[in-house]
Amino acid sequence: MDLGIAGKTALVLGAGGGLGGAIARTLASEGVQIAVADIDGAAAETVAEELRCTGARALALTWDLADLASIDAHVSRIESELGPVDILVNNTGGPPPTPVAGQAPELWTRHFQSMVLSVVAITDRVLPGMQSRGFGRIVTSTSSGVIAPIPNLGLSNALRASLLGWSKTLAREVGKYGITSNIVLPGRVATARIQFLDEQKARRENREVREVAAESVASIPVGRYGEPREYADAVAFLASERASYITGSVIRVDGGLLANI
């Protein structure tokens, strides 16, 4: 299937990591030019160089999402070197695992800025150009915890949930311009983040990591963790011309993990 996005420019946040890197690779394979953004500049450059070796145009950006003042400079550089952003993949890092109660206001504020305000501000920066061109794709990656809160991920459950209301409202505001806005929820996808969370749970409960992982796998109907590329394929479709009638949606890529309808 031709996704109809060859020659478009995408900004993928958190693209130095497992999910973001997979999304960058999949979009690049469709002929998309990629701005690879990550707080870890070396990781961003590694992914960008990998993409260049396949013939793709890629730009690496060291980007701390908590620094809202840097947004305009980063986006201006993308526009100068690759072109205006047609596809925005909002993929942010997760906060530390903690209970939801008793956390310092400063902790809430810091992660709200990097996980929520950054997404809103970056989207606002690229929206006018999308409107003028009559095409735009905004895909925001959150967590299955926004549907079924995950124990000991209190900050993530609460902060990411706010993005659902934002994305749905945005979809209604910008649909007339040919812009879509959708949420994608990863379940248990095999990334370093999931490995870290399994290790943390094993440590808290004084268990073996393999036991924790096996228990988690047993709760997934397909009987395994997902592969990053499987998640990336769903994101790429939502970013495509073919998905022009899908907006304001919440798409689960979780192997059937979430039991609710």
Rank of each mutant, 00 (worst) to 15 (best):
R193H: 00
Q195N: 13
V75Y: 11
G4H: 12
G223M: 10
S156K: 01
I122R: 02
A121I: 03
G7P: 15
L61C: 08
N152H: 02
A259N: 14
T26L: 09
S80M: 10
L197C: 01
T142L: 09
L11N: 02
Q195L: 11
N152W: 12
R57I: 00
G83M: 02
A60N: 05
G102H: 12
L238N: 02
D86P: 01
R172S: 05
T46R: 08
T169M: 10
G21T: 07
R160G: 04
P221V: 13
S167A: 13
R210P: 00
I78N: 10
N260L: 12
G55D: 15
D2P: 10
Q103K: 14
P221G: 14
A202G: 10
G255A: 14
N157I: 01
I179C: 08
R137P: 03
N182F: 10
L13K: 03
E205I: 04
T9E: 03
R133V: 04
G223R: 00
V116Q: 07
F237I: 01
A121M: 14
P228L: 09
K168E: 09
A236K: 00
E241N: 13
L13A: 11
A104H: 15
A232H: 07
I71G: 13
L68P: 00
G93R: 09
A101V: 02
M115F: 03
I71S: 12
D38S: 13
E49S: 15
Q195Y: 00
E30C: 07
N206W: 09
T92W: 11
A66T: 05
F196H: 00
N152M: 14
T142I: 04
T92N: 11
G226H: 11
V217H: 01
V209Y: 03
S132F: 11
F196L: 04
S114F: 02
G41R: 13
Y231R: 03
R224Y: 03
I87L: 11
P186G: 07
R207Y: 01
G102L: 11
G145V: 11
V146T: 15
L11K: 07
T180S: 15
A192P: 07
L11R: 09
V174C: 01
L238W: 05
G14I: 09
S219C: 10
G223Q: 04
D40K: 09
L257F: 07
A66L: 00
Q131C: 13
H111G: 05
V89K: 05
L59H: 07
A190N: 06
S80P: 04
R110F: 12
S76Y: 01
F237G: 00
E45M: 11
D124K: 15
L82N: 04
A69R: 08
P105S: 12
R229Y: 06
G31V: 14
G102Y: 11
L164P: 03
K8D: 00
A44H: 08
Y225K: 05
A56R: 12
R172Q: 05
S181G: 04
I220C: 04
E208D: 15
V184L: 08
I251D: 05
R224A: 11
L155E: 09
A28E: 03
N152G: 00
W63P: 00
L185M: 04
L155N: 08
T54D: 11
R57F: 00
E227K: 15
N182W: 03
G7I: 12
A60E: 12
E241V: 08
S219Y: 04
R110E: 13
G255F: 01
